[in-house]
Structures are given as structure tokens and as C-alpha cells.
Simulated assay, not measured.
Amino acid sequence: MTEAYVSTRFEGPEAQGTPSGRHPLDNPALGSLTGPHAHFAERRGRVLRYPLDVSPWLALPHDPGAADWADLAALVGPGGAVPLAGFDGRTPDGWEVIFNLDGVQFVDDGLDAAPDAEAVRLGPADVQDMLDLVERTQPGPFEQRTVELGTYLGIRRNGALVAMAGERLHPPGWTEISAVCTDPAHRGEGLATRLILAVAHGIRERGETPFLHTAASNTGAIRLYESLGFRLRRTVRFMAARVPERLEDGRTVGVG
């Protein structure tokens, strides 16, 4: 068996977020795709995923069994890459782990959230500019329809998009701030901070709580988030595995 996505579960009042005793942020992709983002969900059995042009994330149930792994394999197809968020178990034999990243999850614990006069709402007409900025800055996965996941705000200078931030995963009561990026020529101007606080303001206006993820090695981002009023909730390890041609029971993926 191969270790997949490991989380340190939060102990305390927040852990009472679901009937199972698990907090919604323990498996945020599952909470999103069975909650506010259910209209995006592609499903096979208990396995869900976003359309690939929206987001690469998939969601397994908290207690996946052999049938769930078979459904996941059939949904993705043999040889396909499976990124997982919120899975804290182990992958079956034969699933090659192709990506591992130690990360951290932060939650709002006193942000001075506020709208920003220079920030503009980004939409479908801005997607090419957003993709170009993502290409220059590499903040993480961002696809043609990612903008549909929630509110995205940007700052333009002389017509060019130079910074943005927006919303991604959306388990009930929570919204993830993601795609925070600034053009290298405009770093050090505080644009990312302003956009994070502006996006957080919109989330709070809906009565929800902002959260976000970053790599555990990204010490600069961690210092920024802590200075803004985010609190570390847990450590995580993101992973991706490749679907085998055959499952443990010998069945060919997608057959039987």
C-alpha cells in the first residue's frame, strides 16, 4: 500500500462540523462537490470530480473501499493522473504516486478584511489575461473555466492584469482563497495582500469563513498569511497517483 494524503485532524469545537465528527475542511473537495459546487460534480458511485476544464480536483469518500477505487479508476481511465484533496488514507497497490507536496491549511482568525477600490471583478472575458498571468506566476492549477468557481478579483495597470486572487473550493460555510498571484514586475507593492483581504471581505459578507492552502516550504507566504490574521489549522500532504491498467483484483480498469 502507498501512503497518499495525510492530514493532522483538528481537535476542538470545529471538529463537530459533520455528522461523522469530521470537519468540512478535512475533505474540502468532497464538501464542495456535495454542497455548493454540486452542480459541477461528475460522479461515479461515491467518487466525484470537477470537469477538467474547471478544476483537476477529485473527491473520495472519507472511508473509500475497493469499489470506490474501482469507480475512481473508471472515472479517470487507465494511466490517468488522480489528484486528491482531503483523502487521509492509503492508495491500493499498483497506484503509482507521481506527486507529493507537504502543505498547510490556514483559516481566518481575525483578518482585517475590506473591499479594495482598485480591485475589479474578473469574468469570462478576462480568462485569457488570467491564464497569461498564471503562466507567468505559477500559483497552482487554473483552467479555462476555473473563474466559474466563485468571485475573482484583479488589479490592472495600464490595462494589463498584474495581480489577482479568487475563490476555489467551497465546502458549506467555508470558501477557499486561491490563485493568489502577482506579476513579477509588481511584487513588493502589497497587491496580493489587498486582494486577499478584498476576497475575504466578500466571503464574510456571505456569512462564510475564508481558508486557504499553501506549500509548507513557502515560508514567505506563511509569514504573510499569519501576519494578516490567518491561523494554522492543520498540516496536509497533497498527492497525485496514476491509475493502473489493472486493479488489485485483476480486473481491467473500466471493465466489469
Rank of each mutant, 00 (worst) to 15 (best):
L153C: 03
E167A: 02
G110R: 12
G150E: 08
M130E: 15
L131R: 03
D109I: 09
A119V: 13
A165S: 14
L131E: 13
G154L: 02
Q128L: 08
P141F: 01
T146M: 13
T146G: 08
D112G: 14
D126I: 10
P172L: 14
A125R: 11
V162S: 12
F142P: 01
T146S: 15
A165C: 09
L149K: 11
E143D: 09
G166D: 08
A113E: 14
I155W: 04
R168P: 02
V147A: 10
E176Q: 02
T137D: 14
A114L: 13
L169V: 01
G123Y: 05
R145W: 08
E176F: 00
V134D: 14
V147P: 06
T137S: 07
E118K: 12
V162W: 07
Y152R: 01
I155L: 09
A179P: 00
M130G: 05
G150D: 11
T175P: 01
A113T: 05
Q144Y: 04
I155P: 07
P171A: 14
P115G: 10
D109Y: 06
L161H: 05
L111E: 14
V134Q: 15
P124N: 07
P172I: 09
R157L: 14
Q128A: 15
D126G: 06
G173S: 03
V120Y: 06
R121Y: 03
Q128C: 05
V127G: 11
